[in-house]
Design a protein around this nucleic acid. Sequence first.
DNA 1: CTGAAAGCGCTAACAT
DNA 2: ATGTTAGCGCTTTCAG
Lengths: 335, 335
Amino acid sequence: MAGVDKSTVSRMLGGDKTLNIREETRQRISRAVAALGYRPNMAARSLRTARSFSLGITIASLDNPVYSAIIRGAEQGAADAGYSLLIAHMDEAAPDSRVYHRLVEQHRVDGLLVTTLRNEKEHLAALKELQAPFVLVNRKAKGVRNSVVVNDFGGAKAAVEALIRMGHRDIAHLSGNPSRYNARQRLLGYRAALEEAGIPFRPELVVEADYTPDGGERAARVLMETQSRRFTAVFAVTLVAAAGALAAFHQRGFSIPEDISVVGFHDGTVAELLYPPLTTVRVPLEEMGRFAAHALIDIIEGRRRGIAKTFEDVEVIERRSTAPLRASRNLVVRR
Amino acid sequence: MAGVDKSTVSRMLGGDKTLNIREETRQRISRAVAALGYRPNMAARSLRTARSFSLGITIASLDNPVYSAIIRGAEQGAADAGYSLLIAHMDEAAPDSRVYHRLVEQHRVDGLLVTTLRNEKEHLAALKELQAPFVLVNRKAKGVRNSVVVNDFGGAKAAVEALIRMGHRDIAHLSGNPSRYNARQRLLGYRAALEEAGIPFRPELVVEADYTPDGGERAARVLMETQSRRFTAVFAVTLVAAAGALAAFHQRGFSIPEDISVVGFHDGTVAELLYPPLTTVRVPLEEMGRFAAHALIDIIEGRRRGIAKTFEDVEVIERRSTAPLRASRNLVVRR
DNA sequence: CTGAAAGCGCTAACAT
DNA sequence: ATGTTAGCGCTTTCAG
């Protein structure tokens, strides 16, 4: 229709820098493209170039706001570069490292964003023998250079500093499993804030909660039983753990924040749904997702060798679950 | 390596029914496939068959547990049939019907699962001129035959019936926008339950909340201001609205469930995080997602013309936000 | 400045 | 019971 060879069209649409095309020809092609509603066929392009122009993202729990934020960012980042995002759910209970292979070997994706790493060893082994690049998102692992994380340490530190600024000194921590990167960093951030303020670290104020509401509830209960009246604030490793803790405190008749201040890690709409709305530390999850997608595409397209980045921004969002320490607190159980 | 033509391999792997293959040959092929770790190249298959073997799903809010459940199901359903699921986020604030076209015209997907339909008219028009099948998930629209929904009506009815069984008669409804299918059905279910119990419908007990926490909070406040003491239970159109309402009630010093019982629609882990844990009605969202994917694939592959299905199951999950009505209730505002 | 030709890895129709 | 052939729609090298 434009009276030119398809190869010319291909080069023009592909933005070939070595193409010297006459303005008039370019016009004719553009008009024809518009008139025909022409879109390159991705399958043919993929076959020819041996690339799929899509990214895969492996996710363990879709309903965790942390991951939905990351996905949202990743989808944007992929779309920015003309890539699609293919989601692969991977059950944490029955993780199967073969899904990596399935996606890559079938040439469905050019690279992987991985947010799942429970059984680290097996998964890392599977990833490493993969013929495609991958970047860990919100995870770090020994021997893996490609990884994008947020400032877990700084976020935790900021949260605890905020509590200290409110006058709290007896600050407990509902921690995660310290074998995991994020939990470890947050524990270190907690300790750093205490140390800088000259508050001695008391190991008995750290109780391990997993990332579930039940875990948070149990941990809070342990804290109340072993340390009643010996803490006035709690920093929880996660929103979900914080929510569980709130429930445990409510059940014991404590008022939040009058009796105990609570801060959680990660922001999200759930934080506003809790009672009282939860003070949290917000980290740029969506931005991290977008960046990770961009970086992965850069690696795929050979513009970059690897990526190791930490998003430093942290922001404490004060809601109603925290309050200044009052001199005369009343920890008497009501009802 | 197996000493046969690639077309034979193709037919065997593709499960061609008309292929009569010698057991011995089959063995040789299988061995070679295993030895080489051979996987068909999807791009070539796509080019040849003019199909992408992937489904697209359009989602407005990823962090809404309703949609994460649907995605999870859809991803499973797609994987069952060897399809991938490609997610396309579509901002409800700035919905862009062109994303449908982008996905389909680039031959990235063979069909679309659509859960987004705010600006119905424009979107439906865009979808209809699409050269690919689509099925609405959790939505219904005039003139669209393909649609899979849950029993919004029955779920709402069951929720209200549960309240009635607890002795409540003055039951308010925080509704959604009645122009939307789901909200309308839930309102009808509410009314049907009242009617069957011989309780007159009082329009002043229905207050519109949108699907946000703020909306629920506002609506609950309206209810308290205009109807104080004239209702003992609330059925909220959504989990999120229920959460907002809980906050409003707490702020006014009401105890849940002692003063007011609250039920929400849709189950999810958030329900357990609220204080008190929210009684909800659970509908099979994940199953609906899986089914929708299967049905869409059936349509794509010509085994089915269309799909119109309602998942009837509803189940009221009683948690601590509901309680039997006591004869002597105390609605006095504390504090 | 543009065209011609080859070929990516499959599948489906047709041969044998 | 299996092989041969053609071609899906692109991109890329090479020619002119």
